[in-house]
Amino acid sequence: MRLGSFLKNRSIFLLTQGLVLSFIIILLAVVDIGIYAIIYVSSFFIITNVVAFIFEYIRKNNFYKGVLQNLENLDKKFLLSEMVEEPNFDEGIILYQILKETNKSMNDNIAKYKISSEEYREYIETWVHEIKTPIASTLLIIENNNNEVTRNIRTEIDKLDAFVEQALFYSRSNNVEKDYAIRGVILKDLVNQTIKGNSRNLIESKVLIELQKLDYEIFTDSKWFEFIVSQIITNSIKYKKDNPKIVFHAIENDNNIVFYITDNGIGIPENELSKVFDKGFTGQNGRKYAKSTGIGLYLAQKLCHKLGLSIGITSKINEGTTIFITFPRGHHNLR
């Protein structure tokens, strides 16, 4: 609050005070009371006014300055009303009450959306579990009636199952911390497990699997990690070329273990590499292949971050793509 604007806002009051003062001076002059008395009365009048103004200015300035400073320092601006102390002048009290009131109303609104999005998430989870039963029974029927037709149906059911799985993990991805257990696991076991989970798809696409040294202990949640690797494998199959091949290998450094998944697929143009982890990004390859959703890698990155891992990508068009996941070491090993 500037002093200038403070005074300007009180111009009418100042003007009337001026008029009152001149009226008093004229009155005193008319009754011929003497020049000293006039100076004494008017200076008393001016001094009391100035003191009152200074006092008011300091009080208001302190309050508004505090409010603005709080607002600037706050990470979540809507918490402002919690930080402001109730002032002792009318305008401030009104502002204070407005802040409290709007904040409360916004909290109510947020709570409403929180509840509805939570309900939706719960519904999706129940739905996924419900639909797993018919998928399981279809797969059993296929297994018991193995022929050309049912084999083709199984391929489609497997895709269906993968989509259902993705929906489940998507709805859970905001609450990873509610459902995970970080344990020491051998990277090779996780990779084997994931390959087995995608075996039908990989065999049908005639993908050659090459496992290099993977006997490292890493600390992560198996379920989430397998899902991440599944998304990457699915992409490698989607964007394959002739004689597809996926190589899994890992390198141990001083303070981390880096796990590489390399394919010899169609690759990604360099100018799109920075965007592949964005939600909904499908790029040039995505336009050529209708199956792209732009969700797989987005989810993979999101989950990696929640698990404290970093994920990166390198690619060369017509040569292939490498995704690498870095497991930090050191503080994890202390257990």
Binding site: N146, R151, N192, I195, K196, S199, R200, L202, I203, E204, K206, L208, I209, L211
Partner: peptide, 19 residues
């Protein structure tokens, strides 16, 4: 039993063999 089914079976015991 199709070749793919046999391969799938072998893959389940961590033998990721090709065609």
């Amino acid at each position: 039993i199709s070749r793919d089914d046999i391969m799938n079976d072998l893959w389940q015991s961590d033998e990721f063999i090709d065609d």
